[in-house]
Amino acid sequence: MPSEAIIKLVNVGFQYAGSEKTALKNISLSIKKGEVVAVVGHNGSGKSTLCKLFNALLLPAEGTVTVDGMDTSAEANLLEIRRRVGMVFQNPDNQLVTTIVEEDVGFGPENLGVPPAEIRARVDAALGEVEMRDYAEKASHALSGGQKQRVAIAGLLAMQPEVLVLDEATAMLDPRGREEVLSTVLKLNRERGMTVVMITQFMEEALGADRVFVLHDSRLVMEGTPREVFNERALLEESRLDAPAFVKLRDDLLAAGLPVSQDAMTCDALADEISRALTA
């Protein structure tokens, strides 16, 4: 496991201008290069705010945020930070800034100074990755909700950042689309060592992460492997969250005396365990 921190927060606090409530309180965390982390938490807990600190879209009011050792508060670091950390917003409309799909996907790389021929190649590859090549010349505003999310994800992929930050980027996709995006992202992590930060309300999705961060009322209240976090059923409930459906089933079966493994957290793993228990 690589150990170098690509993103590091020390005692970070944040408050929106004109707001009485603090959006983030005293958060310290670090994300290692090549790690896949999931961020979960109730509505308004601070997830989107936290992730906007990772690429200097927001700057901390207290404490420090560093990306690859660079302080995000120093303006001189901005371009280098944006080169490293790319983000898909919760609402893709905030991302789709031009009028045509392929221009939108090329917008990010262009801003990073990527040469035109290379942009062309990246745009084609990224649109292919999200299966939107047929829509390359369509107007971005004339897409369905899920198609917009796919294009926003393509825009991120075309920037080839070291860190992919996905703010509920698959919330509007159909089941297959969600699986495909997740596996694309995990492939980039495996093959190119990209670091992945994904915010999600689907606890099942967080199971695929190396580590899970749980936010509750502006604070980081838990961090650990999916197994550690999702076994804390009472704490999750307190944070308005839930364990994945198959984890709950596993616990109910265990409580009823069925000998299934504590490690079984997915459909297939549980099916193996249950069939073994029932046919033994």
Binding site: P175, R176, A245, F246, C267, A271, T279
Partner: peptide, 20 residues
């Protein structure tokens, strides 16, 4: 067509495949 089954139904199918 890109859709799926409810999670409980998915498990039922997975169990049938394993002979339950």
């Amino acid at each position: 067509m890109g859709l799926n089954l409810p999670q409980a139904t998915q498990l039922v199918r997975a169990l049938r495949k394993r002979g339950v």
